[in-house]
């Protein structure tokens, strides 16, 4: 029997996927529908969504758009691209993105070519339909946490949307917590291919100079 995504999780991920995209006029026109959809998600998620939707309702669309661009388009730490947090602007990121693309194909979907395969709203859309999408999210649980923290630090209401998704996922393991702590402190990793010959090994290891 084919595994399925639970209805509550599916609703949560789908709603988050919609909310995390660039705001449109329809988004504001459909605020009531969004409220309903939020209410239909599991309890903790519903509360988080409600918080976000309250902000959306009380804020002019221009301000939301401005906030969105300032947050997601111009700030690396708030990027909506999941592999960025772990791989930064390194060569490995291309391969990491391929893993997403492969997962979509394995599940029988052709992903949109308008966005990168690790674009969070796209991943959430997939996760609302496919358990393998849940696995992808779980695997990037730590990256979601980094995104949530970055949004939180900027006091962005969008932090609540990430929160709503995160509560439906398993908690962070000790190793993941350590990774998040380190990544939060150091930022995305740097490219290290080709740097070895710059100094003799004893120097690179901090030995005698």
């Amino acid at each position: 029997m084919k595994r399925t995504v639970s209805a509550g999780t599916a609703r949560t991920d789908k709603l988050a996927s919609v909310l995390l995209q660039y705001p449109t006029a329809s988004l504001f026109a459909g605020l009531d529908v969004l409220d309903e959809a939020a209410a239909a998600t599991p309890k903790h998620s519903a509360a988080a969504f409600a918080q976000f939707l309250a902000w959306l309702r009380s804020t002019s669309s221009d301000q939301v758009a401005d906030h969105y661009v300032q947050t997601f388009d111009l700030r690396r730490r708030c990027a909506l691209y999941l592999t960025y947090f772990r791989y930064g602007d390194t060569r490995n990121r291309g391969m990491a993105m391929l893993a997403f693309k492969t997962a979509y194909r394995a599940a029988g979907f052709v992903p949109s070519s308008e966005e990168l395969p690790d674009y969070l709203p796209l991943v959430l859309d997939f996760a609302s339909m496919e358990p393998s999408g849940q696995e992808l999210l779980t695997r990037h649980r730590g990256d979601l946490e980094l995104l949530r923290r970055a949004l939180d630090q900027r006091e962005s209401p969008y932090a609540a949307v990430i929160e709503a998704v995160a509560v439906q996922l398993p908690g962070l393991g000790r190793r993941e917590v350590a990774q998040v702590t380190k990544a939060w402190r150091d930022g995305p990793p740097k490219e290290d291919v080709g740097l070895e010959p710059f100094a003799p090994p004893e120097y690179m290891q901090g030995g005698r100079r």
Binding site: R75, Y84, D89, G94, M97
Partner: peptide, 15 residues
């Protein structure tokens, strides 16, 4: 040799 990062970097102008 390090140009390709521009392509997918979150700092790229996309819209």
């Amino acid at each position: 040799a390090s140009f390709s990062w521009y392509t997918y970097s979150p700092s790229r102008v996309r819209y």
